[in-house]
Design a binder for these strands. Structure first.
Lengths: 227, 227
DNA sequence: TAGTGTGAATTTCTTCACAGCG
DNA sequence: CGCTGTGAAGAAATTCACACTA
């Protein structure tokens, strides 16, 4: 992909965008420790990223550093939050009030970071009207109404795989353009809609690949001491 | 990173490794629909990847295709499973028997895809000895014993952020080298240990960035019909 | 003929290295 | 001097395009 065009200077690439939240997380930590400024070196150490990359990434946001000193922690938090669209809260609506949905609704980390879970929607009429950890369960037909007055809210798909495509379509029809999808399988969306998929079993399979290499290494080292 | 060296032909790159499970998922779906062979075009469509990339990725595994025909679905499933180290089950141990841990233990998708959740470990002595959805909760000190006789098993960190580093260390000390980490924050591991981090709030922040671009577009299109 | 396998071209991402500023 | 900001170099990943073959 070719980078995301922007208001200010040139473009921010995908790779950079996906690291900004990482920096933000680290900066908040540094601020909590009372640090007033931080160098690219220091921020890199905190975020697990090398210093040159930090500088290049931050340079996309503007010239916020001071040569010989570093970056002002609070100021950078402010600018980065703005860039990430975190200046205001974004409501989260979860499709699928099952196990995973419950866990997500209970997860404090969302609300804490400005993403309050405001509602479930579920296709099962028996669940509609109930409420889970204080979050009400609505019918899918109420989605448009839920989105109203909550511009820029985010949808989470926590349905079984079979329900994912229709959940996504319901979100899109209701005007939601940012979706986090936990269901395995391909979903098709129109242009202008962003979907990020988190497939947990798929993560385990990737780990399995690397684990196997270790397995082999262990077996090998029983015979020789090869790497 | 520089690619993962291999037994057979050259190397498989990181990017390719992370797509293999995607192909596998699609192939299993195709097999269930009774497809016997599939072209790179068809597999790409099913996996959401372009055909040239599919061919290049698969060529790392070997010359498994037939010109003019495509790939044998069952055979490719077999070879890919082997490559991913899925020929045998890999037990999963979850650190942290909280909300998220519960949801993960209940998630059928793990067991179904060859990753049975065999145990929790938790630092809270009040939880030790109990069991959640049929999965027993052990003390951290029992970890080494749990890993014994389960080579190549995988650890999942589902603790609060504050407990993540020590959970990871406990896993590593017990001989686990593949870890899926749901806690936000940097964890440090020795060489030879693979950690994949899934930070849910971070995913939402990335979505927020793209959502903001849409927001702006909406505001703009109230004045002009740009875009 | 349809579709693989792969060199070569292209694009994207990372890292280097250093001029220049506070 | 210390550290940013950035061109330029390098590496990795993607895409093109086509020779080749079952």
């Amino acid at each position: 992909m070719q980078g995301v065009s922007r208001h200010g200077r040139g473009t921010i690439t995908e790779a950079t965008v996906s690291r900004l939240p990482l920096y933000l997380r680290s900066l908040v930590g540094l601020a909590a420790e009372g640090e007033l400024t931080v160098s690219s070196e220091g921020l890199g150490r905190a975020a697990g990223v090398n210093a040159a990359k930090v500088r290049k990434d931050l340079s996309y946001l503007g010239n916020y550093g001071t040569r010989g000193v570093g970056y002002d922690v609070e100021f950078l938090i402010y600018e980065m939050s703005r860039e990430l669209g975190l200046s205001r809260e974004r409501a989260v609506i979860i499709a699928g009030a099952g196990n995973l949905g419950h866990a997500l609704a209970n997860y404090r980390g969302f609300e804490d970071r400005g993403f309050p879970v405001v509602a479930f929607v579920d296709a099962d009429p028996r669940k509609v009207g109930s409420s889970v950890s204080g979050v009400p369960v609505h019918g899918v037909d109420e989605l448009a109404h839920l989105v109203e007055g909550r511009p820029g809210c985010i949808g989470i798909v926590a349905t079984p795989a079979s329900g994912a495509q229709s959940a996504v379509e319901a979100f899109v029809d209701a005007g939601i353009t940012s979706i986090l999808d936990f269901a395995p399988g391909l979903v098709v969306v129109p242009d202008g809609v962003t979907v990020r998929q988190v497939d947990l079993a798929l993560e385990l399979q990737i780990l399995s690949f690397y684990a196997q290499r270790t397995d082999v290494g262990v077996l090998e080292s029983a015979e020789s001491s090869s790497r």
